[in-house]
Design a protein around this nucleic acid. Structure first.
Lengths: 223, 223
DNA sequence: TGTTATACTTGACGCTGATCAACGAAAAGG
DNA sequence: CCTTTTCGTTGATCAGCGTCAAGTATAACA
């Protein structure tokens, strides 16, 4: 659901950016106690962000794929507002915000772009809230699969044949479901011939059917 | 859950701001088809924002009280990303974003402040998503009451004795519940002596108990 | 390579909260 | 003022999904 940076802007930023830090699967990138210094763009691989409550509970707040920017929710505080972990071998670009802020003063275009990214992040989060509050397990999972699909497509990868970077556990947590429910819905979709899934390998056999499952779409066509 | 503007900054902005537009209860402020021009700060009264899906369903995304800024989620598009309605007689300040953007170039402080506000909005929305995905009806309603309470306190109004600006319907929608459930929880809290509620008039009798209902707090103390 | 931890699946059961229905109370509107 | 909506409450019923439990497959690791 997050966002892409335009290649043009990336060019002009190259000098302030720290290129190509590599993180291994499961490796910790920052957490709520880390002083906030930088946003990160995913170059390859993928990461998840989550909030850890005082009680130790985790709430996954997002998955970030190549081209997407992490850390925008942290620009208001001394420390990061969430915890970020690599889901697989992942390479990141680091954008130090102080330098970014200097730059935005010279480049109003860039500033506008930052506003754009942040406000989209708000919208994404509202969309998620909506999904969580109004939709069934099947609808939530269909929506996630479609979101991943379109994000893979944007990266010129197959939109119907990909491998999930995250375990069922994280999917369940992100969508506010139990792992068991996620598992059951996957097999139900499979039995209906909508998808083929073996472990993390997923093939979308009937994208239309998936879109039908999404509630908005159904409402849109049925009335 | 949203945010306050500091008086200092307000002073410096006064010249670009269009003061004191008044809206009546139920009056429409903008919607998803309105071209995006301005953010609005609530001076008095209150408003609700919601997303209307293609299917006509409504999802309330926030309530905004005096001192809070509306429209930050819309800074990425040509039109507003949500629909805003006054919940009661409400007075707003209008901040035209083009002028705001000019100003931010001259005042880096202001720019920083904008980032701050937007990133807090993202965090609020994540908090909401968390509430919706992990918490029971009682926990959600307790959280809302506490949020309203602290926002009233910030405005120097009674934190234990206030009247809800929104109908049960909007509360239910916002929290992802059925109206009936909201009503039942209110009476349950009342029977437990935690609150006193008659229609929209609410009195918090036992704030501690309300905090106990909130799951994080319970987890925090029980382990 | 065997061993253990982690990830995933499947079934049985119960609870929270949605839905349907009906009614009372307050507000709007003529 | 009475009528009509809107709003709020309460009860009965039921289903979606969480929880518990057990078992299988896959990956991590010594």
């Amino acid at each position: 659901m997050p966002l892409a940076i335009e290649e043009n802007d990336l060019d002009r930023l190259e000098d302030i950016v720290q290129q190509g830090k590599i993180y291994n699967r499961g490796e910790h990138i920052f957490d709520q106690s880390t002083p906030f210094k930088s946003c990160f763009a995913v170059k390859s691989g993928s990461i998840k962000t989550s909030i850890i409550t005082e009680g130790g509970e985790e709430q996954v707040t997002g998955f970030f794929m190549p081209g997407e920017l992490v850390g925008l929710d942290s620009m208001s505080g001394e420390t990061y507002a969430c915890t970020a972990k690599a889901l697989e071998r992942t390479s990141l670009c680091e954008f130090p915000v102080d330098k970014l802020q200097e730059l935005t003063i010279k480049l109003p275009e860039l500033q506008h772009h930052m506003y754009h990214l942040m406000s989209q992040e708000i919208q994404n989060s509202h969309q998620l809230a909506m999904l969580l509050s109004k939709n069934t397990a099947e609808e939530r999972i269909a929506a996630l699969l479609l979101s991943l699909s379109s994000r893979f497509r944007r990266r010129r990868m197959s939109a119907t044949n990909f491998s999930l970077p995250m375990p069922r556990n994280d999917i369940a947590n992100f969508l506010g479901l139990a792992v068991e429910t996620v598992s059951r819905v996957f097999t139900r979709f499979q039995n209906q011939g909508i998808i083929r899934a073996k472990g993390r390998e997923v093939e979308l056999l009937d994208v239309e059917a998936l879109q039908m499952v999404t509630r908005d779409f159904a409402k849109q066509t049925c009335r």
